[in-house]
Design a protein around this nucleic acid. Structure first.
Lengths: 152, 152
DNA sequence: TATTGTTATACTCTATAACTATA
DNA sequence: TATAGTTATAGAGTATAACAATA
């Protein structure tokens, strides 16, 4: 197996481990990855109509209806009337939803510190440099998405 | 945002991009991630009873029934009688299944080369070093899994 | 006429529980 | 009695299409 191939496999393994770890963390809050993404966007953007969520998450309007239904039922968000468009509803974080997102933020910072603090400063720096290079390459190789800049 | 936090976010972004890319590739073969994992294990292990697939993929026996049903219907595998245990079936790759796995293998090698060849040799080396360190840290921080060695 | 969100319907992955056939 | 795999049932995420209310 070539060094390149091995490096790619290591990247995959890391991605999977991080994914599993995150999923376990979300499950303790009674959340799934998809529902968590909704909360995350609401935290960034404030109350938005479901249409906006469908666009930023790149899923169907129908799917958003289901995700918001579930988040309402579990107390993370509410549907509020839109002040000027009676067709739309504003999906709004509850206090519970806000506290949940804040708890992740903290957990993520702590995880990042626990992960990288033990690394030698020089090793960390060159790792991040390589990571940025690889990320740039992957972005180039992917279908050029006009939304990439907007999402970043 | 701290450098540690930023690095973690970059890792996430890379993981997501690689995941999306892979999913697109699988879709062109008419496959999903779960079904592809089945083919992958069959390629590594040869024909195995469904029970083995359930164990290695860490999913329920019921789930394996569904995945194998779908793979049989789409011509990637067949169910063959087990020579000594009449309760069991041996899930076996068809020629189509074998060629599909071989095509991925090639595609993965090409992708890895396209990704890393443009990197300076020194940058690649230190990136892989950092990657291995991070991977080790994540493994430590995760729940210590007795199967980790077996799966690797 | 176009847009927001819903209902209707369907497919995939996932799980547990009950059951059949076999060990 | 235990195991391999299926049927029955259910929940989550996803999609398209038809439809209602509103713009």
């Amino acid at each position: 197996m070539s060094p390149h191939e091995l490096a790619l496999i290591r990247l995959w393994e890391l991605a999977m481990l991080l994914g599993e770890d995150t999923q376990r963390g979300l499950a303790t809050h009674g959340l799934t990855k998809s529902r968590a993404q909704v909360l995350w966007e609401l935290n960034r953007r404030g109350p938005v109509p479901q249409r906006v969520l469908a666009d930023v998450l790149e899923v169907s309007a129908r799917n958003v209806t289901g995700l918001v239904d579930a988040l309402v039922a579990t107390g993370f968000v509410t549907r509020e009337p839109h002040p000027s468009d009676r067709r739309a509803t504003l999906v709004t974080l509850t206090r519970h939803g806000i506290r949940t997102v804040e708890a992740w933020d903290l957990a993520q910072r702590e995880f990042a510190d626990a992960l990288f603090t033990p690394m030698a400063a020089e090793e960390f720096t060159s790792f991040v440099e390589g990571l940025n290079t690889v990320l740039g390459r992957v972005r180039e190789m992917n279908a050029p998405s006009p939304n990439a800049a907007e999402r970043a």
